[in-house]
Design a protein around this nucleic acid. Sequence first.
DNA 1: TACAACTTCCGTCAGAATCC
DNA 2: GGATTCTGACGGAAGTTGTA
Length: 360
Amino acid sequence: MSKCGRKKYMKTNLRQMTMETIDSQQDGSLPDSVAESESAHMQTQTGQNSIPTLAQVSVAGSSTGRGSPAVTLVQLPSGQTVHVQGVIQTPQPSVIQSPQIQTVQVATIAETDESAESEGVIDSHKRREILSRRPSYRKILNELSSDVPGVPKIEEEKSEEEGTPPNIAAMAVPTSIYQTSTGQYIAIAQGGTIQISNPGSDGVQGLQALTMTNSGAPPPGATIVQYAAQSADGTQQFFVPGSQVVVQDEETELAPSHMAAATGDMPTYQIRAPTTALPQGVVMAASPGSLHSPQQLAEEATRKRELRLMKNREAAKECRRRKKEYVKCLESRVAVLEVQNKKLIEELETLKDICSPKTD
DNA sequence: TACAACTTCCGTCAGAATCC
DNA sequence: GGATTCTGACGGAAGTTGTA
């Protein structure tokens, strides 16, 4: 198969995967692609028939009760036990009872990527909240919820909650917040203080502050800070207003007149003038009023393009991450619905046995 | 071991969606 | 209505897997 053919195959596969994920709610089986990638979550497809899948999953209902997130233990045919924590809807204990509203996570016990999975469980609700902030995803999630009576719609978000990294919320009100490709947050405060926050650490401890001491006010309009994950010499650097470069260097080569802050275990940051060509993906901010020659205009256009490309690069990464999250959500929903379907069938059989007169 | 088929990830572009 | 963000589509690179 040619490369082009492969691309088409992949795209077709992706569409099929999405459709099959939805269709599988009807036939009770997971698509191969999903089952393969999500075998750690719940792999229930064991045959071609649609019914056997339902019959080979045993449920040890360990619901924690009304109002709290229920976790259902599911025994798979292979002996593997999985925790099924409600994502969208919990398996209904009875057709008579009203549905309970929950969120869903499927986690596997004793998995090799246990840490990643448990992290997904912990952050699932948070991520769903993040997803719900986007109107497009809010719509999708609402469509998912609309299938199930009793599942609440996602309400409109409060504007003050949007876009603020949790670790920076308690600090001085910054004018700009940027997230690096390594997950760090960089906040530029009004006074020129640069705050660097590691999201994994405590909100206060993860913050590092740099107070810019360089003389001269930055040119008006130069408010963009760009970050390069790693330059060729192994340092991290980003750019601040005033056509200067803040470089993180593991070796503490201090530049006394420009050094802002480097004490203790903190990484060293230096404010330098950019002496070489900018690394890929890094652009400088310039004041619109400072452009004079056509060459400068061309450079400005190039910088704008680089900035746009870098933003789009990050946006694409985030988009792909959200898409994966969305697919996982669908897969989790399939798993929960399968369990629910099995219980309903069992209950139906029980009722049939009770109600039907014996013909002996 | 070489090779093809396949998978996964990434950057970019273009258009849609959303924001202000 | 322009600016910004999001996302589908495309193509390339690198890794994995099965096979002769």
